Measured scan of single mutants.
Amino acid sequence: MAEQVALSRTQVCGILREELFQGDAFHQSDTHIFIIMGASGDLAKKKIYPTIWWLFRDGLLPENTFIVGYARSRLTVADIRKQSEPFFKATPEEKLKLEDFFARNSYVAGQYDDAASYQRLNSHMNALHLGSQANRLFYLALPPTVYEAVTKNIHESCMSQIGWNRIIVEKPFGRDLQSSDRLSNHISSLFREDQIYRIDHYLGKEMVQNLMVLRFANRIFGPIWNRDNIACVILTFKEPFGTEGRGGYFDEFGIIRDVMQNHLLQMLCLVAMEKPASTNSDDVRDEKVKVLKCISEVQANNVVLGQYVGNPDGEGEATKGYLDDPTVPRGSTTATFAAVVLYVENERWDGVPFILRCGKALNERKAEVRLQFHDVAGDIFHQQCKRNELVIRVQPNEAVYTKMMTKKPGMFFNPEESELDLTYGNRYKNVKLPDAYERLILDVFCGSQMHFVRSDELREAWRIFTPLLHQIELEKPKPIPYIYGSRGPTEADELMKRVGFQYEGTYKWVNP
């Protein structure tokens, strides 16, 4: 592979701008107003304001973009700056750019259920340069409990009458099928589907988006991507930290609602779906819905739930269990780990287990898709061969690698495990991989909904998990304890083995 010439960040961002501006969906010269509902909250200060700053800094926003914060707290732009700027990672050389960014910011205080507050917000936006005809993007960085009041008031008082209007809704989209349907029906009564952007930030990850290209742009994968060759698929999300004093919020939802029903299920769809007619948003989402419709409700015998306990040999936070978090209700049975087996009941995947695993306070930070292939028929190497695996590593250190057998150097035919490896950090030294939120917010500006969740996708996802969630809430089974920093409950490994996964433990990928 030829040595790549190092590029400056300015040059890299210039390439990104060229890609972005050559499309006809990006209205570079139009006025846009980006409204952050819930501007005083954690999500706004840690993710949304920093993301908008990065896009502005790199010249990736339309030229005439204004940012308006809205929340109940009586704040000023200076207050917003004070709480969000520490997350910007701005350099001293960017000081003038930073001043320009905050000059485009404003803030309006108001209630979430008060019509007069929204009329005041609308008047404020109209007073901005060309504000009355601007395109408006409303980001709901809010708890779902206020979605209905907020969307109703936005629709009645704050819509642009000339430009387009788009609304970005953060997960969780309800707690179960019934609450999700209620919320979807409410929002759909106010906005068209092409105006609604239900954001799952995992769909903005580079390697998640790469799944489609790997599958449908490489001839070698087509013939082997089926039940005849693939023994099982494992989708993993692991965090090495616990709730760390923020367990009160987590306890309301648990690990299945927080990660599995959305992030992991979306990745499953991209692995299992048929080739779409095109890369058009609805063509892709149509195929994802077909996959979900082929999955039956989760069966309790295919589920393992766990909850982390303190590690007596650990240090600091590792010595504390979930129930030691003062914000967690006493005696909570909320799971911090889950392993679930699903089956896609169609011709391509009949009988292939899709194993979804996620948890907190585990032994490493990792998100990946792992396809394990069947054993080689007619073994001539005296059971020395391990199964081939194709691994798409989402985070950290984005990579695609194939675990395969090669001859060990020497005189004899002794096979050993090795890999074919594409590590993004080595291959793409001159490429700026956008943060997931950067990519998705740019998608909203461009009107691309491919990486957002459609209402029928959402409904099918909740259909699969709601009976299990209701059973857990009714019966309150005690989750299996696992030690902070471990791989999780051993019962999860036993479940995976029972459905056909072979864990060798003899080879570990190392970032080159």
Rank of each mutant, 00 (worst) to 15 (best):
A2Q: 07
E3Q: 08
Q4Y: 06
V5W: 04
V5I: 06
L7H: 10
L7R: 07
L7G: 08
S8L: 10
S8V: 06
S8N: 13
S8K: 13
R9C: 06
Q11V: 04
V12G: 14
C13V: 11
G14A: 13
G14W: 06
I15M: 10
L16R: 07
L16H: 11
L16P: 03
R17I: 08
R17T: 02
E18K: 14
E19P: 07
L20H: 03
L20T: 02
L20V: 10
L20Y: 06
F21T: 08
Q22R: 08
Q22W: 10
G23N: 15
D24H: 09
D24R: 06
A25W: 10
A25K: 07
F26R: 05
F26H: 08
F26D: 05
F26T: 08
F26E: 06
H27M: 11
H27W: 07
D30R: 07
F34V: 13
F34I: 15
I35W: 01
I35G: 04
I35C: 11
I36M: 03
M37Q: 00
G38P: 03
G38N: 11
G38H: 03
A39F: 01
A39E: 01
A39W: 00
S40Y: 04
S40F: 05
G41W: 02
G41F: 05
G41A: 10
D42N: 11
D42Y: 14
L43Q: 10
L43G: 03
L43M: 09
A44P: 02
K45G: 04
K46Q: 12
K46A: 10
I48M: 04
I48W: 01
I48R: 00
Y49V: 01
T51A: 07
I52N: 00
W53R: 01
W54G: 13
W54V: 09
L55P: 01
F56A: 02
R57K: 12
D58T: 09
D58Q: 08
L60C: 04
L60P: 00
E63M: 07
E63N: 09
E63H: 14
E63D: 11
N64Y: 04
T65L: 05
F66T: 10
F66D: 05
I67W: 01
I67M: 06
I67Q: 01
G69C: 03
Y70R: 01
Y70C: 05
A71T: 05
A71E: 03
A71Y: 03
R72K: 05
S73F: 04
R74M: 06
R74W: 11
R74A: 12
T76R: 10
V77W: 04
D79R: 04
K82W: 06
K82I: 10
S84D: 02
E85S: 05
E85L: 09
E85G: 06
P86H: 08
P86C: 06
F88I: 09
K89W: 05
A90R: 03
A90L: 10
A90P: 04
A90N: 09
T91F: 04
P92V: 07
E93C: 08
E93R: 13
K95H: 08
L96Q: 13
K97Y: 04
K97P: 04
L98W: 02
E99C: 04
E99V: 04
A103Y: 08
R104I: 06
R104W: 02
N105S: 07
S106C: 05
S106I: 09
A109I: 05
G110W: 02
G110Y: 01
D113N: 04
D114T: 08
D114F: 03
D114I: 05
D114Y: 05
A115W: 06
A115P: 13
A116R: 09
A116P: 12
A116K: 06
S117A: 11
Y118K: 01
Q119N: 10
Q119M: 10
Q119H: 06
R120L: 09
L121I: 05
N122M: 08
N122K: 07
N122L: 02
S123T: 13
M125D: 00
N126P: 01
L128Q: 10
L128P: 10
H129S: 05
H129K: 12
L130F: 11
G131W: 05
Q133K: 12
A134L: 05
A134V: 04
N135G: 03
R136E: 00
L137P: 00
L137N: 02
Y139W: 06
L140K: 00
A141G: 13
A141I: 02
A141C: 05
L142A: 07
P144A: 05
P144K: 11
V146R: 14
V146H: 10
Y147E: 11
A149T: 05
V150T: 10
T151V: 09
K152R: 14
K152E: 08
I154L: 13
H155K: 08
H155A: 10
E156C: 11
E156I: 08
S157L: 12
C158S: 03
M159N: 05
Q161E: 08
Q161W: 09
I162C: 09
N165E: 01
I167C: 08
E170A: 11
K171N: 07
K171E: 05
P172T: 05
F173T: 04
F173H: 04
F173N: 05
R175H: 14
R175M: 12
D176H: 07
D176I: 05
D176Y: 05
D176M: 03
L177P: 12
L177N: 09
Q178A: 15
Q178V: 14
S179T: 13
S179E: 11
S180T: 09
R182N: 12
L183R: 13
S184W: 05
S184I: 09
N185C: 14
N185I: 09
H186T: 09
I187V: 03
I187H: 03
I187P: 03
S189E: 07
S189A: 06
L190G: 02
L190F: 12
L190N: 11
R192M: 10
R192Y: 08
E193H: 02
D194A: 05
Q195L: 02
I196A: 00
Y197G: 01
R198H: 06
D200T: 12
Y202V: 11
Y202Q: 14
Y202E: 13
K205R: 15
M207I: 14
V208W: 15
V208N: 11
V208I: 04
N210C: 06
N210E: 15
N210A: 03
N210Y: 05
L211A: 07
L211S: 02
M212Y: 09
M212A: 03
V213M: 13
L214P: 12
L214A: 12
R215A: 01
R215K: 08
F216P: 00
F216T: 07
F216R: 03
A217S: 09
A217L: 00
N218Q: 00
N218M: 00
R219V: 13
P223V: 02
P223S: 15
P223D: 14
I224E: 03
I224S: 12
I224K: 01
N226F: 02
N226K: 08
N229K: 01
I230K: 02
A231G: 12
C232H: 10
V233Q: 02
L235S: 02
L235F: 08
T236F: 01
F237T: 05
K238Q: 15
K238M: 15
E239F: 06
P240V: 10
F241C: 15
E244D: 12
R246P: 11
R246W: 12
G247R: 08
G247K: 13
G247T: 11
D251N: 10
E252R: 11
F253H: 15
F253Y: 08
I255Q: 10
I255H: 02
I255V: 13
R257H: 08
R257D: 03
